[in-house]
Structure formats: structure tokens, C-alpha cells
Design a protein around this nucleic acid. Structure first.
Lengths: 322, 322
DNA sequence: CTGAAAGCGCTTACAG
DNA sequence: CTGAAAGCGCTTACAG
């Protein structure tokens, strides 16, 4: 591991000159800058990040805290953050926090002492503790996939819009009778979006259902047997939609001819089922990417404001014009 | 951010005493150790990892390099690493490298200068470059999910065994005629495992198929139409199995009555399809966890040897006794 | 334009 | 058992 000292010796200058030359300081003559760079290349010099952090400079390290990388949802967000940070020359330090106390006792201390320049937080359970992070430690942070809080800017998608767009799509393809599968104890925004899309003109109802395959399957059986079958169905997740589809398939209800189905998720399940699911989805990768960009911009001294990211509609085979 | 100096002042001792007391050095009197800890608690002291790294001590940071966190497969492995490292008091620094040049130019330099104690590498494309990492930089590393190379120990699952166990399961439930869907340009181990399980007694054949839904679907259509339908089918991934199932479902072939299907993956697709897929899967989470444990053990000075992790069979509804 | 020196926060021989 | 000092590798006022 070559250090500044090694480069300095080889280039025949002082280490401070090397430091300046490599940092691109204008106060270094072209000739020495050239010589220093050559020496650095020859030795394969790379700055020691710990030393740089210690002397108060940026390290290029961005801390990323998520609840669970194993979930495809969060994994996508992480991907967006990683790619963006990498593209801008940095690296990501990953923290997972399951809950508030885990965060407070393990992650927060690490966050402040790890030498990161800033943090992207994708932790839905955080609230009060956010103050601590930014106020006590002065770490710059942005939130991802949750509304701005505690004065920290965030990048997120709006749930009401998701439901609105899905219902709108069903109405656009001719459904005159739609249903939303959700649970009242979930975010109420889903129901609001549905109401807004229906606009008092299209009959719509809400079925209670957990976000599981089982719940979708049971509802599908019940609808196939006793009806009334809506012309269009919105599910809050792909599993529900799959359950519905399978129940329908087994009972002679055709998707999308008899009933169009649209999901508010868009995981790998959506394309691996038959018919493939039309879906309205949060652009999680983009949310991660934008959050990272916002953080890096803040670190560059730019001011940042929260951003609402829009959902995208992907039309596949489970919905069609009737 | 309280530092050692702050704690020292509050406790009325020298910073070296604080450092020793907090490190649990036996050469510190119980009384001062007690006083120092109290002061540290009161100030909410947490050591600065950069400073610690700079003075040559362990930082508790483990570098993890993967090809793609967005894939559920790698995400599971990352989860195993993160949870294990966290449980042992450390944190993970995440790097993603798409390919060899990306690794060499961006990741390797970062790996050596980021202050990590060691690295878990889950990069299938690595080979020659491994020498560099360990020899030039002296970083301790373990490989995950690939065979040991360049003298670096690894934790991995054996593909031949996966195929063997899947075929064995089919034979055990009474299939007297099995087929494997794979491609000759994939790892040949799959075919070898099948051969070994069949043992010259059970007729078996190999169908060429990309690891996609489409490939499975097309094969399913062909088998349903023209046969001969094997009694048991092994697919190298869930997508293939899903495609097969759908083609069968549409053409009156019943799974598992007419044909048992087993997959060599076990993603979320396996449980979200109908019938749910029986699968032989790599314990990726465990591979990550074991790799992390192995690395941390090596850092503790223990010697480590490569480990082969065994696949697990999860019997669901797509196979049954005939 | 360049160098000598101090400082970031920690650890650890070296004295006492 | 405890302190004063040097050192890890970098950055940046301060001189010249």
C-alpha cells in the first residue's frame, strides 16, 4: 500500500505538494503536477480513506440504512443507491436496522462514527430518532420511500396516486364496476385514490384482504362462486393477484375477458405468472437513485427539496379493453 | 461527537488511560475503569472508526462485494452476511462490481483503502485478480458461492449435489422416467448429478432450455402435445418450472398427478405459484452467514478451511407419490 | 509555487 | 497502574 510519503519520495517533492497535486490544486505547477501523477500511477497509489476522513475531508462513503435487503423491494432501492453512488465515484456502507431500538443502539452510533459523508435512510419506523441523527451529529441525510420528517428531505412515491392510476386504467379499458383489494388498517390512501378515480360515476367497492397469496385465492374462490364479479380488480400486491388468478383459472373465470386484474406492486412475480400482470409500480430503483443524487448534491453544497416520484403503469396481459 | 479527550477530561485521567479502560485492558484499576466507563456513557462516546483504522486496529467493518444486490439470489446472500456481521458487532461496507474491469478499476482500490478488516467476495467472474487482492494488499478475504481459488477459502454449494438430490427425490416418489431441463452450455454438473441419481436404472434424458419462463412454457407445450411426458421433471430454475406448469395447466396435463415437477431454485416464485413448487435449493442466506463467520474467525486468528454447504429439499405440491 | 508543521482521534510501546 | 509521546496517512493554514 503506497502512501503519500512514497509518492513524494519518488517524485522528489514534499508530501503536501503531492496532496495538493492529486487534489488538483491550481497552485501547483503543471510540471510537478505531471510528475506527481506519474509517480502515483507508477506506485498504484490510492488515498487511505480513513486518514482522509480523519482530517475532515470527504471520503466518498455514503451510509445506506434499510430495513431488509433480502426483500426485493428494498433490494431495488439499494441497487439505485449503489449504482448512483458508484457512478459518482463513491462507495456505500450498508446498515440494516430491523426496528427502532436496533437502530438506536447499534446503527446510529455506527452511522456517526463510520466516516461516511452522509446517509440515505430507508427506515419506515423512524420518527423521533431522526432529530438525533441530524441535530446531534450533524450528519447530512435524506430519506427514501417515506414522507419527509424532522426537516429531512425525502424522495418518495405517493400511494394515493398509485391506486388512482390503477383504477383509472381499469376505467379507461372499459370497466364500469371496479373493486380494490386492501385492508382498512393499511394506508388509507389506497381507498382515497380509488374514490378519486371513480369520481362518483363508476361503482366501486373495497374487499378486505391481507397482502398474501392465500387472501387473494380465497377472495377469488368466493367471487367465482357467488359473485358479484367486478369487471376490474386492483390488488395491493402481486401475491394477492396471483392467488386471485389461480382461483379464477380453476373455476373458469377468464382473466382479462371476464375480469381485468391490476396489481400495485410489480415484482418478478408479475412477469412470471400467466397471464402476466398489468401493474402500477413504485419506481424503487429510481427512488434510490434520486435519493443518492440528492444527498450527494447536498454534500456539494446545493440545496435540496423533497421529491415525489411518480408511479409507472406497465400494461401486460391481465387487463384488456372490453 | 465526544472524543477520547472529552471523556478523559471528564474522568480526570489521560486519554491513554481512557483508551485502555474502554478496551478492557487488565492493567487498569477497577475504580478508574468504572469511572471512565461512566464518563463515556454520560457523554455518549463512540470511537471514531477512521481513527481506529488509521492506528492499525480493527474497525469491525467487513467489505462485501457482490455482482448485483437487486437479484433476490445475491440479496439473500447479502442478508446472511449483514446479519452475521451485525450480530458480531460489526458493519458491512457494500460494493457492487458488474465485471472484471469494474472490479479492477473501481472496487479493488476502494477495497484496500476503505479501512475494512476483511472482505467477503461473491463475484463469480473473479479469478486472476484475486491474487492481487490478497497478496498485494494483504487483505483477508473469503469467497462465497464459488469454488475456492487462488488459495482463498470459500463457502459454496455443490451443483452436482443439487441435481442429484432433485432426481433422487423424483425417483423416491416413484418416477420411473425422469428428465432434466438445462442447457449443455451451463454447468455440466447438473447432468452429472442426474446421471448419478438415475444410476443406470431409471431412464433419464436432458432437454435443452434457457433458464426462462418462455423456454419452460414452450417445452411444456411440446410435451403436452407430442410427448413423451416424463413422470418427473427437474428444472434448473423456478421460471422454467412456472412456464411448464402453465403450459400443462392449459393443456390438461396435471401436476403432480401426470408429471411431478421440481426446481433447482427456490425463489419467491416457488411459493406463489399453483401448485406450489417442490424445490432443491442452495441455502444462500446460510452461505452468506457462514462466509461472514469464517472471515471473522480468520480475523480472530483462527484458521479456516473451505466449506461445502448442502442443499435443502423443500417438498411442496408439485411432486407426489405415484 | 513549495515546504515544514500542526492537527484529525485513536493505539501502544516506553517510562515511571 | 498511569502518563507523555510517537505514529497511523492525510489536509491545510502559515511561511517563504
Amino acid at each position: 500500500m503506497a502512501t503519500l510519503k512514497d509518492v513524494a519520495r519518488l517524485a522528489g517533492v514534499n508530501i503536501s505538494t503531492v496532496s495538493r497535486a492529486l487534489a488538483g490544486s491550481p497552485s501547483i505547477s503543471a510540471a510537478t503536477a505531471q510528475r506527481v501523477r506519474a509517480a502515483a500511477d507508477q506506485l498504484g497509489y490510492h488515498p487511505n480513506l480513513s486518514a482522509r476522513a480523519l482530517s475532515g475531508k470527504r471520503t466518498g462513503v455514503v451510509a445506506l440504512a434499510v430495513q431488509d435487503i433480502m426483500s426485493p423491494v428494498w433490494a431495488l432501492l439499494c441497487g439505485g443507491v449503489c449504482d448512483t453512488v458508484a457512478a459518482r465515484g463513491g462507495t456505500v456502507m450498508l446498515f440494516t436496522a430491523q426496528n427502532e431500538s436496533d437502530y438506536r443502539e447499534r446503527v446510529l452510533p455506527a452511522l456517526r462514527s463510520c466516516g461516511a459523508d452522509g446517509a440515505v435512510l430507508a427506515l419506515l419506523f423512524l420518527d423521533q430518532q431522526l432529530q438525533q441523527l441530524t441535530e446531534e451529529t450533524g450528519i447530512k441525510a435524506v430519506l427514501a420511500e417515506c414522507r419527509p420528517r424532522a426537516g429531512i428531505p425525502s424522495v418518495y412515491a405517493d400511494r394515493e396516486e398509485a391506486s388512482y392510476r390503477a383504477c383509472r386504467h381499469l376505467i379507461d379499458v372499459g370497466c364500469r364496476d371496479i373493486a380494490l383489494v386492501t385492508a382498512p388498517w393499511f394506508d388509507h390512501s389506497y381507498i382515497e385514490g380509488c374514490d378519486r378515480a371513480a369520481g362518483g360515476e363508476v361503482p366501486h367497492r373495497v374487499y378486505s384482504g391481507e397482502p398474501t397469496y392465500q387472501a387473494g385465492y380465497q377472495l377469488g374462490l368466493a367471487l367465482a362462486a357467488d359473485g358479484p364479479l367486478p369487471q376490474g380488480l386492483v390488488t395491493v400486491c402481486d401475491e394477492q393477484a396471483l392467488g386471485l388468478q389461480h382461483a379464477f383459472l380453476q373455476n373458469g373465470v377468464q382473466v382479462p375477458q371476464d375480469c381485468s386484474v391490476i396489481s400495485l406492486e410489480d415484482s418478478m412475480l408479475a412477469v412470471a405468472t400467466w397471464p402476466q400482470l398489468t401493474a402500477v409500480s413504485k419506481p424503487l430503483y429510481r427512488i434510490g437513485a434520486r435519493a443518492a443524487d440528492m444527498l450527494l448534491d447536498m454534500l456539494d453544497g446545493k440545496t435540496a427539496a423533497s421529491q415525489v416520484v411518480h408511479h409507472q403503469l406497465t400494461v401486460r396481459q391481465s387487463t384488456s379493453l372490453r
